[in-house]
Design a protein around this nucleic acid. Sequence first.
DNA 1: TCTGGGGTCCTAGGACCC
DNA 2: TCTGGGGTCCTAGGACCC
Length: 460
Amino acid sequence: MRPDASVLHLDLDAFFAAVEQRDKPSLRGKPVVVGGVGGRGVVATASYEARRYGVRSAMSTREARSRCPHAAFLTGRFHAYREASERVMEVLRSVSPLVEPLSLDEAFVDLAAAGLPDLSVPTVTEVAEEMRARVHEVTDGLTASVGIGTSKFIAKVASDLDKPDGLVVVAPGTEVELLRPMHVTVIPGVGPATAERLRRAGIHTVADLERVSLDELVRLLGKAHGAGLWSLARAEDDRPVEPDRETKSVSVEGTYDTDLTDRKVMESVLTRQAGDVARRLRASGLSGRTVSIKVRLYDFTTLSRSTTLSSPTDTASTVARLARGLLAELDTSGGVRLLGVGVSGLADWIQEDLFGDDFGDGPGDADEADDAVPEVPLPGLPARHRSGWAPGMDVVHADLGRGWVWGAGRGVVTVRFETAETPSGPVRSFADDDPALTPWRPPEPPAPDAPVTPQSPTPA
DNA sequence: TCTGGGGTCCTAGGACCC
DNA sequence: TCTGGGGTCCTAGGACCC
């Protein structure tokens, strides 16, 4: 805890939804929900108009639709968000060299490194108001809420106190009285599970927490967590603003609209994800020794398996092979809703084979060709159709006859074999490059002398 | 057809080494 | 031969954050 209020926390208001409203004027003033729009999607951000209907982050999209059916439901446009975020971070870095981004829409700024004449409340208030105005300007109208205090914890609490488009400075010395009446969940690290444990011990507010001894808290929550909460309840927080935090892991995962049951499909998914992970590792000049998979079963049970190599890799084929091997250990017969691949134990260099011929190669040179993830056109399926499946397309599978694409994405196509004879046939998933899938083809243009038949109107 | 995706940090047990 | 401990690495799971 510092003598001055010199830690600033900035939080862009309803960020993803606000970017959509900025870019599409027709959405302004209306409820907008950004998130997964599939059957198993959840809300990432709801505009304030949508929040009035009870739509919240992390709520299932299904629930959000029932609460606010007239909202616009959009999947994210992450390039736009990243671009806006970069502009904001630039503004922050023009104020202080010590900026720690927490996500696209949040960051801490250390005002003690900003070279201000002093760190009095009026001075930091003025700096923050200028900063908010600059953010508004460079992002074409986005608003931010800002909090300033003597620590990260207090700054973060403060930025929440006057949302949206607010600024709160917590004067040094007033932290504890601000916190005491608040619910324990204001403390970062107190989520549903910890809150429930504390509730059962009769601890509801920060004031309650402050009365519990360090020993008892450690007994209740474990060493690190207990000791951390004990300090935060007293507003004791010395965590520095860290501008360059190192990446510890890189992962890709996906949840499918219908559970996967076919091992071949699962392997194909893992192979594609391994390619994505390897590509991102290389793009960052990283490689890692531990390859993990994550599997969420039909009943939401989540399993993980990992294996560690003696030297780091950034090679798609290696990650893919290990991932498929880890999957082989698991019983997935009940169906799988989520699959993921990750690499951790990262180093910013690659352990070359010290005794091999390519000693001295730079990072990323190993097995370049091996990383080319299957772009080979498969028999009977023109390359341009790969990953081009969309719901409504007509497909044919040899075993089950004609079906319709029900869901598509992340390398998986879900087909409902629904025909006039079997109105609600079985649903099966395929890898999107499965040669058994025959793509829809646009109708041939009518011959010049053929009679032109009127198109039946397409339902909206 | 309740429950995303990308992360971080912590715990606990077992292996292994000194 | 028996006993004891500490430290580190690895794996699996869980809580939490935005």
